[in-house]
């Protein structure tokens, strides 16, 4: 039974890892960032590329992936999203377009493949990321074999969640972000540089996606389409948790992960997914604002 709960917890941590960034960009800024999955993919490819070209290990690529994804996120905010605040559906369409651009850039090796030049680590194929030996296999607690890599993901997710909480609730810039969530115009009137804070927030959310990408690359397949399915799960977590609530995202990721794990072990994975979707629908019907919601002013 404990092994099933552990798998549930692991599923939850993976959901949360992707959702953390979204909780910030969607929850806090009201931007439906469809390119979030692609930022995860960029993080994964950063791991591949830094392994091949910089000879860096898996762990060393975490900060690089954060910086690359954050930089890309910052660019997206400056070039596209900045013009679309307050227009929810337009952000969806625009960032979807950005997502396709990023995907094709990776697939076509930034256009070099048209010229017959091939860059190792890019292109339409599957990529291989090697994971350090101490993260492979299992360790045992009592008579329970724990999957080391999944335990590692849980730790990383927990650390990032705490970090994000700390930034949001214990730093001056976090307070500014929260002020903007509640009421951007009033925040601006109080002297907060909304433009700058928004750009930084978006970059930070994107950077989190980059780290999620590194984690995913260690046990999932790295290829240009990998982000597409993740962004859907990420939005489920954020919507169920309540837009703008970090605690809500944590709770809903835990809930959906455990439901998935339990149902899958009792029946099968296909049914588990259906049950998860049914639960999501039920929660949205009963609590349209999500599990945790605040009153906007």
């Amino acid at each position: 039974m404990i092994d099933v709960l552990f798998i549930g917890l692991s599923l939850a941590s993976i959901l949360l890892l992707v959702a953390l960034g979204l909780a910030i960009t969607y929850g806090a800024m009201g931007v439906i960032n469809m390119a979030h999955g692609e930022l995860v993919m960029v993080g994964a490819y950063t791991t591949v590329m830094s392994g091949i070209w910089l000879k860096l290990g898996f762990l060393a690529s975490i900060p690089i992936a954060f910086l690359v994804a954050a930089g890309l996120g910052w660019l997206i905010e400056r070039l596209v999203v900045r013009w679309l605040y307050g227009r929810l559906l337009d952000t969806l369409l625009a960032t979807w377009g950005v997502a396709i651009l990023i995907q094709q850039a990776v697939r076509l090796e930034f256009g070099l493949s048209f010229l017959g030049i091939h860059v190792r680590g890019l292109g339409p194929g599957l990529q291989n990321v090697s994971v350090p030996g101490f993260l492979q296999g299992t360790f045992t607690i009592g008579d329970l074999g724990i999957n080391t890599y999944r335990a590692f993901i849980i730790l990383v997710t927990a650390a990032l969640t705490v970090l994000t909480w700390f930034i949001l609730y214990r730093t001056p810039i976090g307070m500014q972000v929260r002020a903007i969530i509640r009421n951007p115009k009033m925040a601006a009137a109080c002297g907060i540089d909304v433009d700058r804070v928004n750009a930084l927030t978006f970059a930070y959310g994107s950077g989190l996606a980059g780290i999620a990408g590194v984690m995913m690359s260690g046990f999932k397949t790295v290829f240009p389409d990998m982000g597409t399915s993740m962004v859907v799960d990420g939005f489920l977590v954020v919507v169920v948790g309540g837009v703008g609530s970090l605690a809500g995202s944590v709770l809903s990721a835990g809930l959906l992960g455990e439901i998935n794990g339990l149902v899958a072990s009792g029946t099968n994975d296909i049914l588990a997914r259906a049950v998860v979707f049914a639960v999501v629908i039920l929660i949205i019907v009963l609590k349209p604002q999500g599990l945790f919601s605040y009153k906007g002013r």
Partner: peptide
């Protein structure tokens, strides 16, 4: 005789089932 969705890459539960 078990199946996972095409393109799905979350194997935690299935491998645990295989194990037990």
């Amino acid at each position: 005789d078990e199946y996972l969705e095409l393109g799905h890459s979350e194997w935690g539960s299935m491998v645990n089932k295989i194990k037990t």
